[in-house]
Amino acid sequence: MRRPGERAWWPYAFIAPAFAVYLAFVFLPVLDTVRYSFTQWDGLTAPVFIGIDNYVRAVTDPVFLQSLGNNLALTFWFCLLPIAIGLVITSLIARSGLPGAWFFRTAAFLPYVLSLVVVGVAWGWIYSPVFGPLNQFLEAIGLSDLARPWLGDFDTALPAVGVIGTWVQYGFVTILMVAGVQKIDEQLYEAARLDGASSWQQFRNVTLPGLRNEITVALVFTLIASFRVFDLIFVLTKGGPANQTSVLSFIVYKNAFQYNALGYAAAMAVILTAIILVISVFVVRWREREGAAA
């Protein structure tokens, strides 16, 4: 509320600097991306309006569809697996408040703060066909038949990228859930124990419902991350072999800045952005409804 003696422009003066930079370098570009997506444009001559042709082209383009499919497949590795691992770890260590937990928390969180380019270099070496630790390990335990160029192999390239995503995400997800479990009322567990509930039943009926919020948040964050794997793909595979690891963000980049198909790239960027927006809005809505119900 404005107080007496305060001028009406104060709020705008406070907000203007941040909002101006945001408008110029985030909001206007978003609008322009949408505008470009309805044109055919090579970046040199004037854009030509072509309606929804770029979107039609996308849904009939095998590379686009394969990239979208790869993104969806990666959600297993980036979202479902880390959340499953996080729940298992949480159920094993939760509520015991083990001393020394800070060290393990730091270790588990480390992958999440690293540049994905660094992550790519580290895992590129682990997967390396020549003397990479993974193949060396397989040889050491007598499974040298399994050794292969993990990122170059048609069948293993996408899961190999996926495993990296699991590695990056699972620590963050686990810490989120362990923090959530500590907020659950201890009396709920005592009541469950008095009713003779087993560990599994306590987990199912107390822990899991109590973590609903955390699981949702983890799902949004990991889903968004799985649609934004650009850095890893650029460093490790460039989408290969034969588009096996191509993803939406990578074909946006390739079409825009290598093929100069800017209108088409913009349309795919809009689709990518829309997917992320829909996921976020859906979850915000869902949480609001849950909050209202509670």
Binding site: A8, W10, Y22, F27, Y36, I224, F230
Partner: peptide, 28 residues
């Protein structure tokens, strides 16, 4: 501190920035 003319609209426009990936702005 303030509710002011346009504050809700400006707030929602900013909200969008939390979700937009760089892929959505890089071409322009």
């Amino acid at each position: 501190r303030w509710r002011f003319r346009g504050s809700t609209l400006i707030f929602f426009v900013l909200l969008l920035g939390l979700m937009v990936p760089f892929e959505g702005v890089i071409i322009p």
